[in-house]
Amino acid sequence: MDVFMKGLSKAKEGVVAAAEKTKQGVAEAAGKTKEGVLYVGSKTKEGVVHGVATVAEKTKEQVTNVGGAVVTGVTAVAQKTVEGAGSIAAATGFVKKDQLGKNEEGAPQEGILEDMPVDPDNEAYEMPSEEGYQDYEPEA
């Protein structure tokens, strides 16, 4: 019985440690998101679009440190934060509304985080759909 109880105690310690790591990862992701939003706020009209992409990228980098179902929630929060940063930029006159959601080359930025393969159960990952990809044929 002692062996059984000791095993359960060790398992509990492992769960607590994993929860603490997840909590730490979420806190880091939130900190990076805040950094990115402050970065966007300090940019001029020309830099705002690039700044919004930076927020998304920093958040995406930190999301990889967070495991399990938390990833889905962090990704949703990050996307809403990026959308909010863009709205703030438009409201303050840093950028025109028609410039939001495009990178410096004018290509749409939507789907940055949505296409990231995420499995809350950590069982399997699927690649994003290939609808947006084109076949590449090298020139002879």
Score class of each variant (00 low, 15 high):
Met1Glu: 00
Asp2Ile: 15
Asp2Gly: 01
Val3Ala: 03
Phe4Met: 02
Met5Trp: 13
Met5Ala: 03
Lys6Ser: 03
Lys6Ile: 09
Lys10His: 04
Ala11Cys: 15
Lys12Leu: 14
Lys12His: 06
Glu13Trp: 09
Glu13Asn: 07
Glu13Phe: 07
Gly14Thr: 15
Gly14Ala: 15
Val15Ala: 03
Val15His: 00
Ala17Phe: 10
Ala17Val: 10
Ala19Gln: 01
Ala19Gly: 02
Thr22Pro: 00
Lys23Val: 09
Lys23Phe: 15
Lys23Ser: 04
Glu28Ser: 12
Glu28His: 04
Glu28Gln: 14
Ala29Arg: 04
Ala29Pro: 00
Ala30Ile: 07
Lys32Val: 03
Lys32His: 10
Lys32Trp: 13
Lys32Asp: 00
Thr33Ser: 05
Lys34Ile: 05
Val37Ser: 01
Val37His: 00
Leu38Arg: 15
Leu38Tyr: 11
Val40Thr: 01
Val40Gln: 00
Lys43Ala: 04
Thr44Cys: 15
Thr44Phe: 14
Lys45Gly: 03
Lys45Ser: 04
Gly47Arg: 11
Val48Lys: 01
His50Gln: 11
His50Pro: 01
Val52Arg: 01
Val52Pro: 01
Val52Leu: 15
Val52Ile: 07
Ala53His: 12
Thr54Ala: 05
Thr54Met: 13
Val55Tyr: 15
Ala56Arg: 11
Glu57Tyr: 06
Glu57Asp: 09
Lys58Gly: 01
Lys58Ile: 05
Glu61Val: 08
Gln62Asn: 12
Val63Phe: 04
Thr64Arg: 14
Thr64Gln: 11
Asn65Leu: 07
Asn65Thr: 09
Gly67His: 12
Gly68Glu: 12
Gly68Met: 06
Ala69Glu: 03
Val71His: 09
Thr72Ile: 11
Gly73Pro: 02
Gly73Ile: 10
Gly73Ala: 14
Ala76Thr: 06
Ala76Gln: 10
Val77Gln: 02
Val77Asn: 02
Gln79Val: 08
Lys80Val: 07
Thr81Arg: 03
Glu83Gln: 14
Glu83Tyr: 04
Ala85Lys: 02
Gly86Asn: 06
Ser87Phe: 06
Ser87Asn: 08
Ile88Asp: 03
Ala90Trp: 09
Ala90Asn: 15
Ala91Trp: 13
Ala91Arg: 06
Ala91Met: 11
Thr92Phe: 15
Gly93Ile: 13
Gly93Glu: 04
Phe94Pro: 03
Lys96Phe: 12
Asp98Gln: 06
Asp98Thr: 12
Gly101Tyr: 14
Gly101Pro: 08
Lys102Val: 03
Glu105Tyr: 12
Glu105Ala: 11
Ala107Arg: 13
Ala107His: 05
Gln109Asn: 00
Glu110Cys: 10
Glu110Ile: 06
Glu110Ser: 06
Ile112Gln: 07
Ile112Gly: 07
Leu113Gly: 15
Glu114Met: 02
Asp115Trp: 03
Met116Leu: 07
Pro117Ser: 05
Pro120Gln: 08
Pro120Tyr: 05
Glu123Tyr: 13
Ala124Cys: 14
Ala124Lys: 14
Tyr125Met: 04
Tyr125Arg: 09
Glu126Ser: 06
Met127Asn: 09
Met127Cys: 10
Met127Ser: 05
Pro128Trp: 09
Ser129Trp: 03
Glu130Lys: 09
Glu130Trp: 13
Glu131Thr: 12
Glu131Gly: 02
Tyr133His: 10
Tyr133Ile: 04
Tyr133Leu: 11
Gln134Val: 03
Asp135Pro: 05
Asp135Tyr: 10
Asp135Val: 07
Glu137Ala: 08
Glu137Met: 06
Glu137Phe: 12
Glu137Val: 05
Pro138Gly: 12
Pro138Tyr: 10
Glu139His: 13
Glu139Tyr: 13
Glu139Asp: 13
Ala140Asn: 14
